[in-house]
Design a protein around this nucleic acid. Structure first.
Length: 296
DNA sequence: CGGTTATGTATAG
DNA sequence: TATACCTAACCGC
């Protein structure tokens, strides 16, 4: 699920599997043909995430900057190392095929399967490959251009060196609802609709409260809450924001997927903490979920 | 099979 | 505020 935690996992996956290798780069779909041609054969030097954006730094001052948007995904295949994250992004079951290595040179790298669907970018390294489908953004830039783009984003709670001060200041100077500010990538980078709903619930904050009505301590707690939930997301590979006491049953008997969230997509169901029906509404074109009783 | 929905953002009006 | 973008899962028929 492409909120910030997914993209940080992607950066780690690229670092583990591709950094230091010269990659074959292609665009089977054709919509990134020029960029792919310019990158083909280049050595990947680093893989980084800031918020929901992925930065792949290639030798020669070339950066492949991408954003999965609502339905983009990277899928991986190859040797065992690549199976750790067969697909990261929108929910789908691709990248689970076996390596298509019939006809591969003995001892050589596994070959990727023929592209299925619209593969915007295919990267092939020594031991596997990665396919990008459906991205909202996929551009080849100089490092200066990529750095300028990164500078337009707010601090990322998943960055251990991030300073929350710009986030706190941006919220406190705005009349916009805190629920809208949390989704603004220039205010804080990496929070999406699920982390917004869940972190506001966990801090007991009404999403419609104007930013300027909130104090600095409350906002630092909100930052810390988001960071904690996002770190859990990185660790688990999915968003789980409920505590064990929020979930029915005990031990291993819990029915997990249905009990991963506190309010997100639970409209009409009783709040896990107080029983009041969870509310849903729209804010700036996105669905907002909250408990009218716990959040005020 | 077709309609709906989605973890997102840029752009137009 | 509306829409375009672009892909796949899900659901009802």
């Amino acid at each position: 699920m492409p909120e910030g935690h997914s993209v940080h996992r992607l950066a780690r996956q690229f670092a583990d599997c591709f950094v230091g290798q010269a990659l074959s780069v292609s665009s089977p779909q054709g919509r990134f043909a020029d960029g792919a041609a310019a990158l083909d054969g280049a050595v990947l030097e680093a893989a980084r995430a800031h918020g929901k954006q992925l930065f792949l730094d290639f030798a020669g001052d070339r950066v492949l900057r991408s954003h999965l948007g609502l339905y983009g995904a990277w899928s991986f295949g190859g040797t065992d190392r690549f199976r750790g994250a067969s697909s990261i992004g929108a929910p789908r079951r691709i990248g689970e095929r076996e390596a298509h290595d019939d006809g591969a040179p003995a001892g050589g790298p596994p070959l990727p399967p023929p592209p299925v669907g619209a593969v915007r970018v295919r990267l092939v390294g020594d031991e596997g490959w990665a396919d990008l489908r459906g991205p909202a953004l996929c551009v080849l830039e100089s490092s200066a251009e990529a750095e300028a783009a990164r500078g337009r984003l707010g601090p990322d709670p998943l960055d251990p060196h991030a300073d929350p001060a710009p986030f706190v200041a941006a919220v406190r100077r705005s009349r916009r609802p805190v629920g809208a500010l949390l989704m603004d990538q220039a205010v804080v980078a990496g929070v999406g609709n699920i982390f917004r709903a869940e972190s506001l619930f966990r801090r007991g904050l009404d999403p419609m409260t104007p930013g300027r009505a909130l104090g600095e301590p409350v906002l630092r707690e909100l930052w810390a809450e988001s960071a904690a939930l996002m770190r859990t997301g990185v660790r688990l590979g999915r968003i789980v924001t409920t505590d064990p006491s929020d979930r029915p049953g005990t031990g291993e008997e819990q029915a997990w997927p249905e009990h991963a969230h506190l309010v997100y997509r639970r409209q009409g169901l009783p709040c896990r903490r107080c029983g009041t029906p969870v509310a849903a509404g729209e804010l700036e074109g996105r669905t907002l979920f909250w408990c009218p009783s716990c959040q005020r």
